[in-house]
Write a protein that binds this DNA or RNA. Structure first.
Length: 643
DNA sequence: TTAGGGTTAG
């Protein structure tokens, strides 16, 4: 019997797929061991916990087992608690209380409380707490710790505190749990107090403080703790990098990465994915390439998450070819994140057909899309003008893949109709949504009204926005631009006045360009300096050449005021991306691709301008705007003028 | 205790 047990265990150890699990199950049935609690328990554990997609099979196994013991109940609860449907863990737990001969133990409570925490159900959490109390397990170290975590996740720091104070001698894990719970509930001061009270602090406790401060945006406090730490590990460093990156302080995030290397600490895979995501957000292509080289050399290139980050980085830095190369190189190891990143990357570049083709390949290879994959394919359709395909994917998502649409999916659909000029359809769709439309939905529609010049609907939509997000400067500017295009100058003035009255400031546009090792940024309306003077001089020269050789005429519709034509020209010609591209032409070597990152969307005039430069100067220009890429070459753009 | 894919707009 012992030999058989050993054999079964070693079989399970090497078993990685559901198919292999089924074979082991079949062999247990032939020998009659499938009803033995030992074998059944181990098999169940493997299905419910170890293998990622075998939870349904675990449930079937469980249901066919005549008298499941506590271990089997706990295993199924554990599997469900980490799944997409943690509520099932609660149902299994209730079933256990009703039917099982043995009562739930500390493990049952630890797992089921984790489930309540995972879907943030305070109501279920409290009921489970009462049950734990009834069984005398509420002060058990494991159960108590999960109770604290659960209350923290559910935002109830008071209850977490009450549980904590009941424990006579909390260990360090429990202290960490109460500090985390405070941070989770947004109680930074409480976390600080608890941290000060801790009798013993280990490295983990300090790391929790770093992460908590950083997530709360308290970067100075995080820095202080970091400096005071006598011992720092790789987690401390990557927490700092991620913390600064999350708060938009990319330079400092990079700084910590440099410092980490200087002190001789080794970057782990989390650090690398974090730094890559900073590159992606900044559009820092050259640095991304250096990191890629480092990853290859240091043996991280087989890790799925690192590859996913590389795909995303290359995509967001405009090199979809390199992204594709990384993607193709991971044949059996693509995760749903890999597929989604690649589809989104293609979509951002305006390669709608290729995105759809890849989605098909994914389906053919038996991979099920998740909600985010569906958002990406809908995004691809809306940005390529594929209305029918977009609608078909939306239906397929619900009917075939059983995915409930979220606000993001609805957003894509409103964009799909709106961008294509079907404004009425877009409006009706927004009104009929299963969830209440948020500001983004209405803003999408306002953007569509701007593209297609529909003043009446724009005013109606702006009213909705004024209820949901009244101080958003972009909405005011957009409405003002819509009026300006329609020549309604009185209305333009009214919007302008209300912006001044409410102290709403227009976000200035900026563009960045890297030349050699430096990043230069150009901000609309900033004071002239040496760099901008150089850019302006070059820009004047370029404009002249484009007028003569390319027949360029400024498009000046999208300017706020009713001002003289000449002044409008001046305003449009100052757009930051024009200055950045002029600077690039002045400073970069011939033949080098000009890469620009911009914070807002590119305007129609700048778009025409870039197309002409690419033709007249024989250059390749890449502009990453707020939401996508424009690759200009030989007089045309990859977005096919649809954006 | 750290990370990684998604909707809009200025």
């Amino acid at each position: 019997m012992n030999n058989r047990r050993q054999h079964c265990l070693s079989m399970l150890r090497i078993c990685k797929t559901l198919k292999a699990i089924k074979q082991i199950h079949a062999s247990l049935v032939t020998t009659g061991h499938h009803t033995d609690p030992f074998f059944a328990g181990k098999l169940l554990l493997h299905c419910a916990v170890t293998i990622s997609d075998a939870l349904d099979y675990a449930r079937t196994l469980f249901l066919h087992f005549p008298n499941p013991d506590v271990f089997m109940y706990n295993t199924l609860i554990r599997g469900f608690s980490e799944s997409g449907t943690p509520q099932n863990a609660i149902f299994t737990f209730m079933d256990m209380c009703r039917k099982s001969v043995d009562p739930p133990d500390s493990f049952s409570f630890a797992f089921v409380l984790k489930a309540a925490a995972n879907y943030r159900s305070l109501k279920d959490g409290i009921q489970l707490h009462c049950q734990a109390l009834r069984h005398g397990l509420d002060t058990h170290l494991f159960v108590g710790t999960t109770l604290i975590s659960m209350y923290g996740e559910c935002g109830s720091v008071q209850f977490a505190g009450k549980v904590f104070e009941e424990i006579r001698q909390p260990n360090v894990v429990m202290w960490n749990a109460i500090v985390t719970a405070c941070f989770r509930s947004g109680d930074v001061k409480g976390a600080q107090k608890m941290f000060d009270r801790m009798p013993v602090k280990d490295l983990t406790s300090s790391n929790i403080m770093l992460a908590g401060y950083a997530k709360a945006g308290e970067l100075e406090l995080a820095k202080k703790v970091f400096l005071e730490m006598s011992l720092k590990d790789d987690v401390s460093w990557s927490t700092m990098i991620a913390g600064f990156a999350h708060n938009g302080c990319f330079d400092e995030a990079f700084g910590y990465f440099g410092e980490l290397q200087r002190v001789g600490m080794k970057a782990n895979m989390v650090t690398l994915t974090t730094v890559l995501s900073v590159c992606a957000q900044m559009g820092a292509f050259d640095f991304g390439k250096i990191l890629h080289g480092f990853i290859e050399k240091s043996g991280f290139s087989w890790i799925i998450s690192v590859n996913n980050a590389l795909i995303d980085t290359y995509s967001k830095c405009g090199n979809v070819g390199m992204a594709r190369l990384v993607f193709e190189r991971m044949p059996d190891k693509k995760s749903i994140v890999s597929w989604t990143s690649m589809i989104a990357g293609l979509a951002m570049q305006g390669h709608g057909e290729q995105a759809i083709q890849l989605f098909k390949e994914m389906e053919d290879s038996g991979i099920r899309p998740d909600g985010i994959t569906c958002t990406s394919i809908l995004y691809a359709c809306s940005h390529a003008g594929f209305i029918e395909q977009g609608c078909a994917y939306f239906s397929k998502m619900m009917d075939v893949y059983n995915i409930e649409p979220t606000i993001e999916h609805y957003g894509c659909m409103v964009d799909l109709y709106g961008r294509a000029g079907k404004l009425q359809k877009a409006f009706e769709f927004a009104c009929k949504m299963q969830i209440p439309p948020n500001d983004i939905i209405w803003r999408t529609l306002l953007g569509a009204c701007s593209i297609h010049g529909n003043v009446e609907l724009a005013e109606h939509v702006k009213d909705k926005l004024s209820e949901l997000d009244p101080n958003n400067s972009g909405d005011h500017v957009l409405l003002s631009n819509i009026y300006a295009v329609a020549g309604k100058w009185k209305d333009v003035a009214t919007v302008r006045r209300s912006m001044t009255d409410q102290k709403i400031k227009k976000t200035p546009g900026w563009s960045m360009i890297q030349v050699d090792k430096f990043i230069y940024s150009f901000v609309a309306g900033e004071k002239p300096n040496e760099i901008t003077k150089e850019a302006f001089d070059k820009l004047r020269e370029i404009m002249l050449r484009l007028r003569v050789e390319g027949g360029y005429v400024l498009e000046v519709v999208s300017v706020l005021h009713d001002i003289e034509e000449e002044e409008k020209e001046d305003s449009v010609s100052k757009h930051s991306e024009k200055l950045a591209v002029a600077f690039g032409i002045a400073r970069l070597c011939k033949g080098k691709v000009i890469r620009i990152v911009k914070n807002l969307r590119i305007c129609r005039d700048c778009h025409t301008f870039m197309k002409l430069i690419s033709k007249v100067y024989g250059l390749e220009i890449m502009v990453r705007d707020r939401s996508r890429f424009h690759s200009f070459s030989n007089g045309s753009c990859s977005c096919k003028d649809y954006w």
